[in-house]
Design a binder for these strands. Structure first.
Lengths: 188, 188
DNA sequence: GTCTATAGCTTGATAGAC
DNA sequence: GTCTATCAAGCTATAGAC
């Protein structure tokens, strides 16, 4: 029963918003403090490592959530194409129909620390491998499965950039719809 | 015959590198000074508006270069698919085979000014319209042409993000190869 | 046109009261 | 666990000599 003003989940939600929106350098302690309602010193009490630890915590929690809520359907039973369709539905929620940028994009500029860049790359690769797996199960050779997974990730990331710049989320929706065929070679 | 240490083109080259790599907030005056070999005060002499004017100048010159060197083939004579192939070759040089990030991505986070965000959106839209034009000439309806252009831009931007995060430039190369068919519905 | 020097503010981070 | 107060270092920007 903590005497916290905000519990860890609420706190990380707010921090995530700021990093997603402003990137690493753009997310100042003032901004983070204002968004969370906690003073700078209180943030340091929760995250002794300061801003970098906040970013790492945000990334870690996003990883966990992503694996258990978005990628989970990929390793369940059933038709590969149906599993991908499930993932696409989760992606639509996760990225709020394209209105949310991807943390991995926002935190991948060279204004971050090496540790964060490596974290981003690992998360990216994990996603890639999960999609490679389902493409393989759908009958693709290893090489083809890898290529399909990369193409899928390219289209997801690209449509999120498109949406951020233009405000038009239709390409993101289109990408989600095409994912099952793109990954498995099968419409359903 | 200027007594400048660096001419405008060299100067903007260096500034461009920094903004592309570090984003807006990540590009500090110290970094920009170091990259260009000019002291802070000298940069202010060239760009009285400071950092924002530098970013605007970088964007404007990138626009000019992009229109005249990359998009130019799209409005020349010849088969639409061949013109797209030309653009793809120029893109490969412009983005150094995917090793360069896109300025429009790097400068599109919310750590920039409104003016810069609007500039980025205009540049993005101009590119979109140029590709919409060639898709139309290839016989697509307005709606289809717009969709194809958006999909092309999605794949280009996505493959550049992919390349930045993983260091693997193959998806970018693949996207360039597929552009003629993607935009015109024709392999060549 | 470039420089050194500096102003004034914001940054990330810490100390210590409650 | 949160706060106020503070620090040194960084930031953007300016003044003025050469």
């Amino acid at each position: 029963m903590p005497q916290s003003k905000v519990d860890d989940n609420q706190l990380l939600d707010k921090l995530t918003d700021v990093f997603r929106l402003h990137g690493y350098e753009g997310a100042s302690l003032s901004t983070l403090s204002e968004a969370t309602g906690l003073q700078r010193a209180s943030l340091y009490h929760r995250f002794p490592g300061g801003k970098e630890e906040m970013a790492q915590a945000v990334l870690s929690r996003a990883d966990d959530w992503f694996v258990s809520h978005v990628l989970a359907p990929l390793s369940e039973a059933g038709e590969p194409a149906k599993r991908v369709k499930q993932m696409a539905q989760r992606l639509d929620k996760f990225y709020n129909s394209g209105k949310f940028s991807c943390l991995l994009d926002s935190l991948s500029l060279s204004d971050t620390t090496n540790a964060i860049q490596q974290h981003v790359e690992r998360s990216f690769t994990a996603w890639l491998e999960a999609m490679t797996g389902v493409a393989s199960e759908a009958g693709a050779s290893t090489a083809v499965a890898r290529r399909r997974a990369a193409d899928a990730l390219v289209q997801i990331q690209g449509s999120l950039v498109f949406s951020r710049v233009t405000g038009d989320g239709r390409p993101f929706k289109r990408v989600l719809t095409s994912l099952p065929e793109l990954l498995t070679g099968n419409d359903e």
